[in-house]
Amino acid sequence: MIDQIRSLLEQHPMIPLNFGVLADDANLYDAGLTSFASVQMMLALEEEFDIEFPEAMLTRRTFSSLANIADAVSQLTRKAA
């Protein structure tokens, strides 16, 4: 799951972060993730995994690391299954 997310985000033209060198638990905001880019990230994840993040999950913490993102995505894909 994390690898799929990493490669999805790495290819995204509007998220200028080098995901290849970031550890699963590295803080993406510290690595330069802006609010705008985090919104692009949310939209890309929703499209890739056919999910919709509920409002309660639209927080800074949900998108703060690849591990947190994978947690959130797997919660939502489990729900959908």
């Binding site: 609010s35 705008f36 985090s38 919104v39 949310m42 939209l43 993040f53 409002e55 639209l58 927080t59 800074r60 998108f63």
Partner: peptide
């Protein structure tokens, strides 16, 4: 929009 909800949460958290 919904992306805006996230921006708003970020703004408040910080």
């Amino acid at each position: 929009g919904r992306g805006g909800k996230m921006m708003a949460n970020n703004q408040r958290d910080q």
